[in-house]
Write a protein that binds this DNA or RNA. Sequence first.
DNA 1: AACGGCGCCAACCGCAGCCAG
DNA 2: CCTGGCTGCGGTTGGCGCCGT
Length: 357
Amino acid sequence: MGRAPCCDKANVKKGPWSPEEDARLKAYIEQHGTGGNWIALPQKIGLKRCGKSCRLRWLNYLRPNIKHGAFSEEEESIICGLYVTIGSRWSIIAAQLPGRTDNDIKNYWNTRLKKKLFGRQPKERSTGRITNGLKAETTKRDQKEPSMVNGAGNGIVNHNQYWPQLADFTTPSTLHEIPNIPHHGSPVDQLACVGGRFSEDHLRSVFSTFVDFQNPIHIPPTPLISEMLTEPSSNILGSFQSVNSICCDTPQSSNTHFINTIREAVPNAWNELQYFVNDVSEDEVIYSNQQSSDVLLEAFCGNCSSRASSTPESSNSWNDMSSLVDPLTVSEYEACRPVIQQDCSAPFRESMYFVPR
DNA sequence: AACGGCGCCAACCGCAGCCAG
DNA sequence: CCTGGCTGCGGTTGGCGCCGT
């Protein structure tokens, strides 16, 4: 038996609010407050609305001190920084921006900031709308607000166009070149050391440690790659291993740790990147860089990476691998395994980095 | 001028957590 | 402790309006 509906759906009005409804709701709440019961509120006012709808209308539109209109660069910076560090906790992010609602911020992120940060159009979702990235990226509106669109993946760097108040770091090739990031401690701590304020260049610098924008290595499609791209594997570890051998040639255990570490350190950016990989074809260029991935490993993991076995090994299962790696690495992986399996059901092909030629 | 594509944003939906009884 | 109702949250959707063809 399902839960009881919060209101009589047949008897409630849906859709846009009329000025009269707004006025009645506003007047009542200003005079009496919500009474702690949104469900009962519409009946008291005589509105044919669901209580949740009233609450939403009040919180997002009618309550005092709501700020409408364009977001400032400072606000953008805060949103981006918090999103990278805490994810889509819109209510928490909204709490840092007086006058802004979580809904506003969520919309702003989904429609504008995401594109600004990552440059490519989102992968088409099953229920989502199909977007025309190229067209979208060159609309007048976007031209008015320059984005990193043209900088992503082609080595062109925009220096803090959106975060002018931040230091104008050139794109460093490794994390070591980013000021104030300690090279020890947990990845999260390290990222937190920049105050959760990530400019486009911060993000690029993080990713450039394993995506070498300047010196891409072109790996011709192999049957293995093609298979990975077209045939989702249920064996994620197998995919990791494949990627390991294709991309980095680093010890498998290190690479697994590396992957997990990145996922842990920048989960949302990671998810975003997966999200942007949609139209992979054989003429895509795959970028990889062993040296940079090693640097990232070191930067993120400190001594952790050195604990992992350095013996290259062929193996298709974690059990086989576990004897080669530090127990901590195993437990760390096992802890996040359900998440990985959930997130990477179309496995590593969606986690690899493809940049169009 | 008409039409289609797309972005934007208000609003809806469903789930999870909280809390009182 | 259990249950049911309410609230809050995040993801998704629908519709309007702008823009390009």
